[in-house]
């Protein structure tokens, strides 16, 4: 089992104050990393043995904790009311979930979550060269949140269609927005051929 504190030490050695905080413990530990050092941090973690990218997702914190409704009275039978959570530093948070998996025994050597608060839509650097499944995951984050990734091409929509306007999992995208209907597309003629193999 990997110790998150030890990992924090390794990262501090590599990127200094680029890693800002460690919260949680055990498999639920979260390392917060700055945008400038995220790529290096993930490279170091990969070298530390985190061979599986379990998940990459995003959370939009627009308006988080800003509930204007008055708090209802507290009563032992009524659902508990909580104080407003602290204000997030930026609007979007990218969440990288890493796993160190021992292929021989099939047991986990550790899990760590890396959180990256994103200033703007440029998002983070692409990590699809470190974990190839990041390709689809980054496309999904772009599709649903409009967060881009630098250092990669082919950032297309994956779940939605190309003509879709906007990014639906953003908090300012209303749930009842209608999208314009699209007509049939002209398909490319099969004899023109194509090349799906990656460039050498």
């Amino acid at each position: 089992m990997k110790d998150p504190k030890a990992l924090l030490g390794v990262l501090r050695d590599a990127i200094g104050l680029g890693v800002t905080a460690l919260s949680g413990a055990g498999d639920d530990a979260v390392l917060s990393v700055e945008q400038a050092s995220i790529r290096r941090a993930l490279e170091v973690l990969k070298a530390q043995g985190f061979n599986v990218l379990v998940d990459l997702t995003c959370v939009d914190y627009l308006g988080y904790g800003k509930d204007e409704r008055p708090a209802p009275p507290s009563h032992p039978y009524l659902p508990q009311r909580w104080a407003s959570p602290p204000k997030p530093p930026h609007r979007f948070k990218l969440v990288y979930r890493l796993l160190d998996l021992d292929a021989a025994s099939g047991l986990e050597r550790g899990r760590i979550t890396v959180a990256l608060w994103v200033f703007d839509e440029r998002g983070g650097p692409s990590v699809r060269d470190l974990w190839p499944n990041a390709d689809w995951l980054e496309r999904e984050v772009w599709d649903l949140f409009g967060i881009g990734f630098t250092g990669r091409g082919d950032l297309r929509r994956i779940l939605l269609y190309p003509e879709f306007v906007g990014h639906p999992l953003r908090k300012d995208y209303p749930i009842d927005r209608r999208q314009p209907l699209i007509g049939p597309k002209e398909a490319p003629r099969p004899e023109e051929g194509g090349d799906l193999r990656p460039a050498p």
Binding site: V54, D55, T57, V59, D60, Y64, D67, S84, P85, R97
Partner: peptide
């Protein structure tokens, strides 16, 4: 099959 839930302390999931 993983579920990542985020709450803001209100009655609906934040994410």
């Amino acid at each position: 099959l993983g579920f990542h839930v985020v709450s803001d302390g209100r009655s609906r999931p934040w994410r």
